[in-house]
Amino acid sequence: MINLLSSPGSGKTSLIEKTVEQLNGKFNISMIVGDVQTDNDAMRIGKLNIPVVQIITHGSCHLEAQLVRDAFKKIEDEPIDLLIIENVGNLVCPAGYDLGEDKKVVLLSTTEGDDKPLKYPAMFRNSSALVINKIDLLPYVNSSVEEIKKNAKSINYDLNIFELSCKTSEGIEDWCNWLLNQMKK
């Protein structure tokens, strides 16, 4: 079970779409997605034909274990090898709420600036992996992947870091391989 965390708009749903494209058929993936409002994300993921439950938090800025447990009841009869929880887009509060996951994965896109790990240390400290998304935009933004990595490592030396683009699919394979290795554990 993976708890996927990031700011709004970093590409959590896109990353899940790419991951499912790559791994579905080989593994049974299910998803629980949290948003403050709308079931837009569940509709997007639903097109991939995997079991998905939308949690609408009605204003709350993070998911809590109880919400996930209740949502899980709707898919508990499905065969599940990998359950991905897409948390509410927020780099602050979700860091403090464990959902029963095996790993927290934080996603950061290159457009957000390279000092985010220093500004939100708890999130980067508590995560096992960092996915840097939107590397296709690097020529157009001021942040550098090296700087993001340096800052992230200063908070959490053990972070597994992946650089990828959900737009071009570059780097998706490395990320999926890491997920596969986690599932073997």
């Binding site: 403090g96 240390p121 400290r125 490592k153 030396y157």
Partner: peptide, 20 residues
């Protein structure tokens, strides 16, 4: 401070064992 390296040997390979 939220500085995660060893004050003794400067190694960044540290575990947080308390404070949360």
């Amino acid at each position: 401070d939220f500085i995660f390296s060893c004050p003794n040997c400067k190694s960044p390979a540290i575990n947080v064992i308390g404070g949360d």
